[in-house]
Amino acid sequence: MKVVILAGGFGTRLSEETDVRPKPLVEIGGKPILWHIMKMYEAAGLTDFIICCGYRGQMIKHYFVNYFMENYDIEVDLGANKLKFLGHPSERWKVTMVDTGADSMTGGRVKRVAHLLNNETFCLTYGDGVSDVDLAKVIAHHRENGRAATITAVPSPGRFGILELEGSAVANFREKPANEMGWINGGFFVLEPSVLDLVTSDATVWEREPLEALAKTGQLSAYRHTGFWRPMDTLRDKRDLEGMWASGKAPWKLWS
């Protein structure tokens, strides 16, 4: 199963970092948060990634093109004109990076990589949030419920869009109501390829028309996660995540 990661936004609320690099490359413990997210999926057995690039996307491409050079020992034989990487990489990832436009919205970015999904079920997440959610269980939940889309629901104050749940089904999806508590979109979606028919253009916001339509038609399922979940929206979030990683007790470190 392929994992699509949205990594093209401007990250304006973390401008202290994102003025010089895309938010997914902002580091936690010396590794980009994108790396942490991919390690979470790897722990669930998923290693085939499609990264939707946009703002400063060339930096994400450079990171992976130079991955061996940055992370492993190198032997250079100048006389023989040979370059050899020493050791065996712990990450056995296949990474496809696609320029999905500087100004595309989240739905538009996913639509732009549809041709790479082979008309198969796929995962979708954001390039700026970590969690201790069991992704294998999210996928199993999706298969058991048989709906077109599954969203990971997490409890939070109402500064985010609210999910109204009826059992395991999402009855309604409402964006950013004021002064309201409830379940919110924690990302970590599992989707059938048919959901891409709901994206009409680069301007389509995945969290608006597509999710709202899926909820209204009973095709949006919710996997409730009450454990750790944290988006890296601000510098304070970054510092909090750094502190957790430095303590050796980062909840999202699901790999050994």
Rank of each mutant, 00 (worst) to 15 (best):
H62G: 02
G187P: 11
H88K: 13
V110Q: 02
R174N: 14
G79N: 05
E120V: 01
W183C: 15
H225S: 05
E212S: 10
I74E: 05
V65C: 00
E27Q: 08
G54I: 09
W206R: 04
H115Y: 12
F10E: 13
N118I: 06
R92N: 14
A153M: 05
K39Y: 02
Y126D: 11
P231V: 08
S201W: 15
G8K: 15
I28P: 02
G161M: 05
D202T: 11
S221K: 06
L34N: 04
F10Q: 12
T96E: 12
G29C: 00
V4M: 06
A171E: 14
S221V: 13
L235R: 12
V4L: 09
R112M: 06
R13T: 10
W229E: 06
P89S: 08
V205P: 00
V170M: 11
G146S: 03
A215T: 07
G158P: 11
R208P: 04
T200W: 13
K82A: 03
K253N: 04
S256Y: 03
P177N: 02
T121V: 15
F64W: 10
V138M: 06
R112I: 03
H36D: 01
I28K: 01
R56T: 13
H115N: 15
G79K: 03
F160Q: 12
Y126C: 08
M59W: 09
R21T: 12
P231L: 12
A171S: 15
V195H: 02
A222Y: 10
G248P: 02
W245D: 02
R92P: 13
R92A: 15
A80W: 06
G87C: 05
C53R: 14
G146Q: 01
